[in-house]
């Protein structure tokens, strides 16, 4: 196992950040921690990167114990924290050289690993890190986290606040790194990114709701979901929420994802109800659960 956590708990004063968390990440796996702000994702990262001590439980990274062998862990992992943490007043190249030197290596020695990513910011290598755009900062931070050829890469919300185009490019980069044998633990609040991981842990309020491959997770969804739309979105939501048989009503893009309390649900009953409410152009059709549906059902 590349990463292993057993019964890890951590509290800050009276706030429990993570509670009895256990999971394992295999070598070469791309594993996602999926959950909203405040779920405990960053606390897990800080414990695994030996920056924070757990109150209870044990954990190993690259087969090193987070307590006994913390120095070995630091030599063998790359960490990209959620907040941009490079030196703003050093240039792109200076930052990279700095991190290489700290780890006793050189840019040349591991250039192969970062080439794909670094080449995109190399034209700006004399620019100060503080003056880079969001996307470029992200690429520099990733380059710095990789320069010592880590066995395990920790990425804490690398795509938060990043537009869909840059997010897609970033995930393509991660896939290429994975092919080079690096184990990756990545966290994200974007449920659509979960589908790109080998396995994911859904996490909320410091607890793991479920761990599985993304395709398996959606299979666990217990109900039939329907796409519902009509001419007036606001009235539709209001009417569905008032419907005595409704179990859940969640906007999903152009549709509402609707589930019914009854096992013998007949969409025509609902259609009639909505028509009586004065709604027009009503569409009701079965659809498949997404990871987000599953997450919301588990978090309910």
């Amino acid at each position: 196992m590349s990463i292993s956590l057993q019964h890890i708990s951590k509290s800050f004063k009276d706030v429990t950040a993570v509670k009895d968390i256990s999971f394992e990440v295999k070598e070469g796996e791309l594993f996602g921690l999926i959950g909203p702000d405040g779920a405990g994702k960053t606390t897990i990262f800080r414990i695994l990167t030996t920056l924070l001590l757990a109150d209870e439980g044990t954990a190993t990274v690259a087969n090193f114990d987070v307590l006994e062998n913390y120095k070995d862990i630091r030599d063998n992992v790359g960490y990209m924290p959620g907040r941009f943490s490079l030196y703003q007043d050093l240039t792109v190249e200076e930052n990279l050289t700095f991190f290489a030197t700290i780890f006793g290596t050189t840019i040349e020695e591991n250039y192969d690993l970062i080439k794909d990513i670094y080449i995109q910011i190399e034209p700006f290598k004399n620019r100060r890190a503080g003056d880079l755009s969001g996307g470029m900062k992200q690429k520099l931070a990733l380059s710095c986290a990789l320069i010592h050829k880590p066995k395990v890469l920790f990425l804490d919300e690398p795509t938060t606040g990043v537009d869909p185009v840059s997010r897609k490019e970033f995930w393509e980069m991660l896939k290429r790194l994975q092919q080079k044998g690096i184990t990756i633990l990545v966290s994200t609040p974007y449920m659509d990114e979960a589908a790109l991981c080998d396995r994911i842990a859904l996490i909320q309020d410091g607890k793991i709701l479920q761990i599985d491959a993304p395709k398996e997770i959606v299979k666990h969804y217990p109900k039939s979901i329907y796409n519902v739309s009509a001419n007036n979105m606001y009235k539709l939501i209001e009417s569905l929420n008032e419907y005595q048989h409704s179990y859940s009503v969640y906007p999903f893009g152009e549709f509402i994802h609707y589930t019914d309390k009854r096992t013998n649900f007949n969409p025509e009953d609902l259609r009639k109800y909505l028509e009586d409410k004065g709604l027009k152009n009503i569409i009701i059709e079965p659809t498949e659960a997404t990871i987000e549906d599953t997450f919301m059902e588990l978090a309910k």
Partner: peptide, 29 residues
Amino acid sequence: GVDPITRRQFWEMIYKNAHNGTTIFVTTH
């Protein structure tokens, strides 16, 4: 960064206010 359920409750608030005549100008990723 808001959780999916709260995100949707937030949008229900947006719908409600737009329905009552407030104009909403919103950016999102």
